[in-house]
Write a protein that binds this DNA or RNA. Structure first.
Length: 423
RNA sequence: GGAGAGUUGGCAGAGUGGUCGAAUGCGGCGGUCUUGAAAACCGUUGUCCUUAACCGGACCGGGGGUUCGAAUCCCUCACUCUCCGCCA
């Protein structure tokens, strides 16, 4: 979340920045500032009263030690009144803090200067396009038909076991999945990321830390009996590894990678574009996360973008990079690049990665801090990116590499699959 | 799941209800000594809120209670450890 001190001192700037998201912030920002004012007022009163009560208690202690019992009793009688007053003020203060917090978490992150204004996907800025969009013959098949023809993904079977959006990968399909996971993890390790295997169920505090809660409550699967959530992305458990920690400045940059399954309810998103692998409730993803010095975060964002692109190049997939506009960007992000691969048979772009700089928005909630210049504690910056999400990559590979002989496996994956063709 | 023990500063580890934000050791930082380093010695060393600053306030796992006053007593929750049960 945003820092209250920053909002207090930069009201107009905050409002102006949030306009880029089409977020009408005037009312909320003013409310937050008023609540903060109230909170500080109560804090001051409460502190003054506590100081008085403390002084009285100390005095009683002194008198008792000197054996002046009667004098002590006199003060005692007076001091007993503090309790109710203190309780009243403490309650008011707690209520004010709660109200402030409730409003504060409703404010999304401030977009970076370079974020274009816009409403939705159509306003995203194409930063670059790489490779040629393949021209396939007329009888080329979309991946769901290819999956059926070669018996490598079974959507119906998954529906029986669980429900729609939970495919079963079979034979070479399953093996190709495993190959991609290993390839992506190996590449990440070469790029300096340390591999971790985090839990794939998280508690509410973790969900709050990275910003999924309360904003996207309905998008996560919730295990009611234990009050845990299935992760929608490895970002959540991996970034939360550093919740409530003070990082040594010399430990920057912290670079982590993890493979996990991801679970998303995708409530309300049905239609033509969710066929096949396009949108699933469970899918596999390798994620990269960095925790860095604030001065470095935008350089690191570019580095992560280049890294993700290197994977797409290695797989020989035509792709483009988008700079998301204010209206399309996630709640917690300051700047996001989306990478999309060209689905040759569907003739449309598929998002396979999203790389974001959250600046201090997450670390304020997470309390990931370091002691900066002058010995002052300050929040670190967090970033993450998909590297990569598997299903749409698989879709693109199947569609783009289909031939009369079968589907050709990208060269870099052959050492991992052990076969060159799906036929 | 059952029974018991525990949770204190970066770590280890004291702490009779009143000067405890907390002994001591280690670690960290600064200094003396040294050609340099080590050792030794001296000093220093938490976070947060409020404030221009001083002052003040909060924090000894979380929450609540008793009391003029709680790290210390009571309740409750979470977690850790030991034993038993179950189990990939």
């Amino acid at each position: 979340m945003l820092q209250i001190g920053y909002i207090r001192e930069n009201r107009d700037h905050v409002i102006e920045r949030l306009r880029v998201r089409n977020f009408a912030a005037v009312e909320l920002v003013d409310e937050v500032i008023a609540l903060d004012e109230q909170r500080r007022q109560l804090q001051t009163e409460s502190d003054a009263l506590a100081a008085e009560a403390n002084a009285a208690a100390r005095q009683i202690g002194d008198l008792m030690r000197q054996g002046k019992r009667e004098e002590a009793e006199a003060i005692k009688a007076k001091a007993s009144g503090y309790k109710d007053q203190q309780k009243k003020l403490a309650d008011a203060l707690a209520a004010a803090e709660l109200q402030l917090h409730e409003k504060l978490v409703l404010l999304p992150n401030l977009p970076h200067q370079s974020v274009p204004k816009g409403m939705g996907a159509e306003d995203n800025e194409v930063v670059l396009e790489h490779g040629h969009r393949s021209e396939l013959p007329e009888d080329a098949l979309p991946h769901w038909d290819l999956a059926a023809r070669y018996d490598i993904i079974d959507f119906e079977l998954g529906t029986k076991v669980t429900g729609a959006g939970f495919p079963v990968y079979k034979g070479k399909g399953a093996k190709l999945q495993r190959a991609m996971i290993n390839f992506f993890l190996d590449q990440a390790e070469k790029a300096g990321y340390r591999e971790v295997q985090p839990p794939i169920l998280i508690n509410g505090a973790s969900g709050f830390g990275t910003g999924q809660l309360p904003d996207k409550e309905g998008q996560m699967y919730h295990v009611g009996i234990d009050d845990l959530y299935l992760i929608p992305t490895a970002e959540v458990p991996v970034t939360n590894l550093y919740r409530d920690t003070i990082v040594k400045e010399s430990d920057f940059p912290i670079k982590l990678t993890a493979y996990t399954p991801c679970f998303r309810r995708e409530a309300g998103s049905y239609g033509a574009h969710v066929r096949g692998l396009n949108r699933l409730h469970q899918f596999d993803k390798v994620e990269v996360v960095q925790i860095v010095h604030p001065e470095k975060s935008y350089k690191v964002l570019e580095e992560m973008s280049v890294y993700v692109q290197s994977l797409l190049r290695a797989l020989n997939l035509p792709y483009r990079v988008l700079r998301l506009c204010g209206g399309d960007m996630g709640f917690t992000s300051a700047l996001t690049y989306d990478m999309e691969v060209w689905s040759a048979a569907q003739k449309r772009w598929l998002e396979v990665s999203s790389v974001s700089n959250f600046e201090a928005y997450q670390s304020n909630r997470l309390k990931v801090r370091f002691k900066g210049g002058g010995g002052k504690m300050q929040p670190a910056h967090t970033l993450n990116g998909s590297a990569l999400a598997l299903p749409r990559i698989l879709a693109a590979i199947l569609e783009d590499n289909q031939t009369e002989k079968g589907i050709r496996i990208p060269e870099v994956l052959v050492p991992y699959t052990g076969f060159e063709w799906i036929d």
